[in-house]
Amino acid sequence: MRGPGKRAGVALWGAILGEGRGCAVRKLPSEPPSSEITPEPLYRRRELLKNGVLTAGTAVVVGSGLLSLVGAAPRDAPEEQPLVHAAVPTARGPYDTDEPPTSYQSVTTYNNFYEFGLDKGDPAKKAHTLQTRPWTVSVEGEVAQPRVIDVDTLLQWFTPEERVYRMRCVEAWSMVIPWLGFPLAELIKRLEPTGNAKFVELVTLLDPKQMPGQRSSALEWPYVEGLRMDEAMHPLTLLAVGLYGTVLPNQNGAPLRLVVPWKYGFKGVKSIVTIRFTETQPKTTWALAAPREYGFYANVNPSVNHPRWSQATERRIGELGRRPTLPFNGYAEEVESLYAGLDLRQNF
């Protein structure tokens, strides 16, 4: 800083500090009237105070600038998620894992749901804009009777059961989640797809007003996922309507979402409004966005390399170390036979 700018700056600080004389503090005029000479100890004290204030001011500017750029301000921490109607996971069925479930707080504040923002904390903060009633599900395509079903009607057809499943995200972290739901197979049987139905396609709501993330072009909206018919009919495949014994929070895909525990989490399409039976393989969102990284099958497979994350290990949320990732996320025994003869390295 040189020239008038600097002098103005110093004078400004002087004024702020009540010195009134700007630079004169440091460079005394050549012949000051004796009445204006600041006594030495006072001068020292003022100088110290001034430097202290300026140091603190600089620190605040630099520090708050950094914190806001990094998004690390303490208030960015996720809010406490109170668990109402808490239900301890009960009777273990044949498909349940007995591993301890991930905390409700983590399950409901660490979500990839780009319709509400790209940060994993965003859905918990922003998904309150989603209106889950009234809600209808449209059944389309290769089906005996295409129709629109009210979600409450659909829920009356089945008694939700608890399923404690591992969930493995493609980003190499995992959870154990006690879902409430019913097998997709039961719904499909009721909907009576035609003999031409080889795949089922499930689609998320498209409404940028309720899902502000859809205003960004990060992905192609609406989010589309799909399964081969035999995968969809597998007893592990679940349509979830709740978790931890209570109704599904919006950020977890209310009112209705897919859970396929042997596949990466992104297959679990949320807030479903369309179920379409098709003859051809659906064009699914992530496979369209980055075809070399995400395939249609997306079976959890520690031996298929991913350019960003090693899939060999995973971090269970709530734990610090990593654990090896199991083929088909530990459900190989149940589902391996679905893929007999299929090259899983090609069809990743």
Binding site: M1, R2, K6, V10, R26, N51, G52, L54, T55, A56, G57, T58, A59, V60, V61, V62, G63, S64, G65, L66, L67, V70, A72, A73, P74
Partner: peptide, 22 residues
């Protein structure tokens, strides 16, 4: 140039903020 004795200490403390926040 003016000595600005507060500049470096100020930046030093400010640059520690992200670590302190963590």
């Amino acid at each position: 140039a003016a000595p600005l004795p507060w500049l470096k200490p100020g930046v030093f403390i400010g640059a520690l903020a992200p670590l302190a926040s963590i």
